[in-house]
């Protein structure tokens, strides 16, 4: 077995008296896709923000395997190190592409930003990489100079993915990546994400309330309720043979198409 990429231990966070999440532990292997599912308010977004270093936990630790092989607590990183990590070795795909894109900047500029951030200073090469990525996420490369405002919701989401993957990250956080999209657009996006994840060997932490999305994309699932992980395991096992009462309720409440 590989060394884990991410180790989460005893993570807890409360907002005043209200609990965000408590006692969460898991590890993530390189190339593994983990879905965190649960209803609104179950603590899944809090958990995502904690493990992506955007929110300090009250208790517990989040350790990440740096490219040099050392496992480091992300809270011990300096802000500079953490931000560098977040824009090179990590990706973050937001539900609302407007939070993950620069809406005033062209598609090419959006994709190129991370490259320029790590010191690429050759316009022609940056542009070539951007063209290549547009093609990979199935956006017509001729639209490289258009701004995201001129794109459809599905295209924006694909642009956001390209913008994140351009530095070859090893870990990508996704917050309801297909939320808010038309059903007809979701399928294509899911297929694209699945293909890229497999091809690039990405590890993904995916937050979703859509069990179908979790089934299609993830290897493993954490079911959250009231801030706790109440059931965890292989995705199809949890969905097809749920053990906990709440998970059984969740699974049986989904309309079969």
């Amino acid at each position: 077995m590989n060394d884990p990429l991410l180790v989460v231990e005893g993570l807890a966070k409360s907002y005043g008296g209200r609990m965000g999440c408590a006692d969460v532990s898991f590890t993530l292997e390189p190339g593994e896709v983990l879905a965190i599912v649960g209803e609104s308010g179950s603590g899944k977004t809090t958990l995502l923000n904690l493990i992506s270093g955007q929110l300090p936990p009250d208790q517990g630790r989040v350790a990440y395997r740096m490219r040099d092989g050392a496992l480091r607590n992300i809270l011990d990183l300096t802000e500079a190190e953490r931000r560098f990590l977040a824009r090179t070795d990590w990706g973050f795909v937001h539900q609302d592409a407007r939070n993950g894109l620069r809406m005033g900047v062209s598609a090419g500029g959006n994709i190129g930003e991370r490259l320029m951030g790590i010191g690429d200073r050759h316009y022609g090469k940056i542009r070539d990489v951007a063209l290549n990525w547009l093609d990979r996420v199935e956006i017509d490369p001729a639209r490289i100079d258009d701004k995201p405002g001129q794109f459809s919701g599905g295209m924006r989401q694909r642009l956001q993915i390209a913008r994140n993957l351009v530095t070859n990250p090893r870990l990508v956080f996704m917050d309801e990546p297909t939320g808010g999209l038309d059903v007809s657009v979701q399928a294509r996006l899911l297929d694209l994400i699945r293909g890229l994840v497999a091809e690039l060997g990405l590890a993904v932490v995916l937050v979703t309330h859509d069990l179908a999305v979790a089934r299609l994309l993830s290897h493993r699932i954490l079911v959250m309720k009231g801030g706790y992980v109440i059931e965890a395991g292989l995705t199809d096992r949890v969905l097809d043979d749920p053990q906990e009462a709440y998970t059984q309720l969740l699974v049986s409440s989904v309309l079969a198409a």
Binding site: G112, I118, D145
Partner: peptide
Amino acid sequence: EYGLMHVKLYEDIAQ
């Protein structure tokens, strides 16, 4: 972190 400054220049050249 000055990558963004070059994004501005990139946009200029692109346009």
